[in-house]
């Protein structure tokens, strides 16, 4: 069936809401160095200042500006999510398509690796690696990507296998088309929805994991992170700073994850019309 994904997405209210939220959050994050009023790594005032015009969300236990910290932490989350999703998608796409097209022993090996990775709980591996090696953010991004690409690869491979037998691809092959041409013109466009889904899902997982790990304190403590902020805020709950310290961090994280969830929900609905609500649902 022919679907024009962009036109459909524009019509999907849930998707548009999610996308707008995500764009707002990520734009703020990207512009953090410009809009943050204070240096988040430096003492700017006395500790535990309540919100004021100078410090929108007050200051923390050592006098850092919480608002600036929040912007930089959001930046870390967005960067982490997008990079992990991009790398995982690329790996998954390349390995999945090639496994389906090449087949044979190569396919077997790739799929066994996928099986193995599926069996390993990624959060545990990440905790162990992070706690033991204390790696930098970049390395952590790569590590996480390397252990969560498997579901994408599996989906892509299955889809490619089914596409491979499609008459229009056979027709192109019989016209003398090269594998590169078939990939570019026939397979990749068909894989787009799967990749988009995978991208959003992986980004969500990555954002959540980064926050979780830093909350547990096994993340580079010098990096600004929503998890670290929450973890510190929790220690001073008795001082009644939750509304200007803990809540903004929790809300930002939630909004980021919800926006991604909404986008993925919309994508799923577009490419699987059976999920469409309203009268259509009753007829299925």
């Amino acid at each position: 069936m022919h679907i024009r994904p962009f036109r459909e997405f524009k019509r999907n209210r849930i998707g548009v809401t999610g996308l707008v939220m995500f764009l707002l959050l990520s734009t703020t994050a990207i512009l953090a160095p410009l809009i943050a009023p204070h240096d988040p790594w430096d003492y700017s005032d006395r500790s535990f200042q309540p919100p004021s015009m100078n410090h929108l969300l007050g200051t923390n236990d050592i006098g850092y500006d919480i608002f600036s910290e929040l912007l930089w932490a959001l930046r870390t989350s967005v960067f982490f999510g997008v990079s992990v999703a991009a790398i995982a998608c690329t790996i998954g796409l390349i390995l999945g398509v090639s496994a389906a097209l090449v087949g044979g022993l190569y396919d077997l090996v790739v799929m066994r690796i996928v099986d193995a990775l599926l069996a390993i709980p990624s959060i545990l591996v990440l905790i162990l690696i992070a706690a033991y090696f204390r790696p930098s953010t970049m390395i952590l991004v790569v590590t996480l990507s390397l252990i969560i690409w498997q579901t994408i690869a599996r989906g892509v491979r299955a889809q490619t296998l089914s596409l491979k037998t499609k008459p229009h691809i056979k027709a192109a092959r019989n016209m003398g088309a090269s594998t590169v041409y078939i990939m570019r013109k026939h397979i990749l466009p068909e894989l787009f929805p799967l990749c988009a889904m995978g991208f959003v899902t992986k980004a969500r997982i990555a954002v959540f994991m980064e926050a979780g790990l830093s909350f547990l304190g096994i993340f580079d403590p010098t990096t600004k992170s929503l998890g670290i902020m929450m973890s510190y805020a929790m220690r001073y709950l008795y001082l009644d700073v939750w509304f200007n310290w803990l809540l903004p961090a929790v809300l930002s994280l939630s909004m980021l994850i919800v926006s991604l969830a909404l986008i993925s929900y919309a994508i799923e609905e577009i490419f699987d019309p059976r999920l469409k609500g309203g009268n259509n649902a009753a007829t299925v």
Binding site: A171, A172, M175, H186
Partner: peptide
């Protein structure tokens, strides 16, 4: 080659022009 089912043998992503142009492009 002309196949059994034209619905399947022409990619749904190609319009008439692109479908006929495909062999030329290849």
């Amino acid at each position: 080659i002309v196949y059994q089912s034209p619905r399947d043998s022409i990619s749904h992503r190609f319009n008439v022009f692109e479908a006929i142009a495909e062999p030329l492009v290849i």
